[in-house]
Design a binder for these strands. Structure first.
Lengths: 192, 192
DNA sequence: GTCTATAACGTGATAGAC
DNA sequence: GTCTATCACGTTATAGAC
């Protein structure tokens, strides 16, 4: 655990938590430093400006996505476990205090974000969509899923639903998330 | 137009716009005052604190909902036009610059909101859900919609999807919103 | 009801010692 | 890499004249 630049990781972790609980404009360097027991300047050493922190966060999420999807891939080409992996991942994040989707948070501040952060966000979304689209297509071909229309559209719709569900679950209670995920399953022709 | 306290209405309108474009922590009294050509203190006259402004915003949305749904009701008990009214309303708001759903914005800052605002938010969501649930139930009974499962769950899912869609449309382009709405129609057994 | 002026504070950010 | 100390600025909010 005491590897080089452990502080950097801890800052990113705390910042992720704060981002998903208050939005990007809802937390300050002071929030991070006080909760971490480091000083203001230490954060600025690792992330010169808050925009740099935003960029690092997006890139961190992208790395997580890559790890997760390659882990999902391990299920021998079957699509269903990959989709279920996404659901589990979403619910686990919610339970671990990452209330809303990080990109739900960033979407609020989108037109204030500097260009590099936007581009990183776009890359992340493209990759996510490509992955889920492929999962849906594969699953439909293999008879695991049953749905009408374009798989890419369907993937977009599922991400939108999950993002919205996470936000509504925060207001209306955790049960909402599970309920809406069950409904996505239904709409894909999966029986519970 | 020059009715008493016109300024109050203008502040609310501008605040709504800013809220849905930047989130509640993303705009200041100065943003409102400069864009409206009034002074800081004038806003404080109408809304003593920013929390009062938040509360007024939520109550304003609630009024809009009541107006809209009672307008929808005018369609002689048929459910489909009421649902289509919701879709049109959502797309029109988006096009008019109210990028994301106001409650998508508030959900980000939810645990910083003072209790009265939360309660108003809960009331709004309850009413919205009741209305859409009834529309879905009625429509299913009358053979307008075809879907499985609980209508209340389905209503929750549709709101979550619309909220997420509006946020993704902001990042990924306006076409996303229409595409996802089309998919909701499909999942309700409606043919385009 | 709106203004000017200002208070009190939190913010992101930097300089320089260690 | 982390610290102390500090800056310049934006924020919400208030007092008091008009």
């Amino acid at each position: 655990m005491t590897r080089l630049s452990d502080t950097r990781e801890r800052i990113l972790e705390k910042a992720t938590e704060l981002l998903t609980q208050r939005g990007f404009n809802g937390f300050s360097y002071r929030d991070i430093s006080s909760q971490l027991g480091v000083r203001n300047a230490a954060i600025h050493y690792h992330f010169a400006s808050k925009k740099d922190l935003a960029l690092a966060l997006v890139e961190e999420f992208h790395r997580t996505l890559r790890d997760q999807t390659s882990e999902f891939m391990a299920y021998g080409g079957r699509a269903l476990p990959q989709l279920e992996g996404l659901f589990v991942f979403t619910e686990r994040q919610f339970c671990e205090g990452l209330c809303i989707c990080p990109f739900g948070a960033f979407s609020v501040d989108y037109d204030e974000l500097p260009e590099p952060v936007r581009q990183a966000t776009d890359r992340f979304m493209d990759d996510s969509l490509k992955w889920l689209t492929r999962v849906l297509e594969t699953g439909r071909e293999q008879g695991e899923f049953h749905f009408q229309g374009d798989a890419g559209q369907r993937a977009m719709g599922i991400f939108a639903t999950l993002q919205g569900a996470r936000q509504m679950a925060r207001i209306h209670g955790p049960a909402v998330l599970g309920g809406i995920i069950a409904q996505i399953r239904t709409d894909l022709g999966l029986v519970d």
